[in-house]
Nucleic acid binder design. Structure first.
Lengths: 118, 118
DNA sequence: CGGTATCCTATAGGATACTG
DNA sequence: CAGTATCCTATAGGATACCG
């Protein structure tokens, strides 16, 4: 740390809290993870990510754009060609997200079991 | 890995996807993080976590319980005493969540800037 | 202290069809 | 291909008050 006080996630109305909420939706983490290996087109993401619809994918990408994590580049032409890519800020999230998805793959069954026990 | 195929977060209807969705709400990460240092009472969490209401905290804790991440112990007596604590499964999430909250504290300002630029 | 009860609204997000 | 448009519903989650 170098003198900055970015606040912490326990404080309401501080940027850290805001940043946590960025990934607090059903699709953000999965979509970001889908961009980990490089730029992807809309259709590529649709194919990659099971269960997401075009509408919801677009919604999610727009939100990620607003939050500075993803860029959208329109190459024009017919048929259209649009690519989504992580920003440098978005790339800083890949470490945490890598851990999270790894956790999910290792512990998904345990979560499922817990839910079914209820 | 030992032969298990837990699926991956890109597959719909697989436990990994389910596990990702466990933390996909406004409060789950912050509440879990609040339990990182040990068992906490309802009021302690209310005090710790800025902006959360009793109702929403209870809701969130119940959901985390259902997902096998948190236990609730009622010690009875007057006044009541209830403690929430991470399960072993919940503790396995602390690594990813530590990274996530750290990221949020380091990059919250950048996210805020991006939002304001929009 | 640790909740419910009640009421309310915004919005996430699913389904489907259409378009430039 | 990459989207909108439209419609729909469930529910997250905020505010406030009451309770054992």
């Amino acid at each position: 740390m170098d003198g900055l006080d970015p606040g912490n996630v326990f404080l309401a109305d501080c940027p850290a809290r805001l940043a946590v909420e960025v990934i607090a939706d059903k699709w953000a983490v999965v979509v970001l993870w889908g961009l980990n290996d490089g730029p992807r087109r809309h259709t590529e993401l649709i194919t990659l990510i099971g269960g997401i619809s075009k509408k919801v994918l677009t919604q999610t990408l727009r939100r990620l754009q607003t939050n500075g994590l993803v860029t959208r580049e329109n190459f024009g032409g017919v048929p259209p060609r649009v690519e989504y890519e992580l920003t440098p800020l978005g790339r800083t999230l890949m470490g945490p997200i890598r851990m999270l998805t790894l956790w999910a793959e290792e512990n998904g069954e345990a979560v499922l079991d817990a839910q079914e026990r209820t």
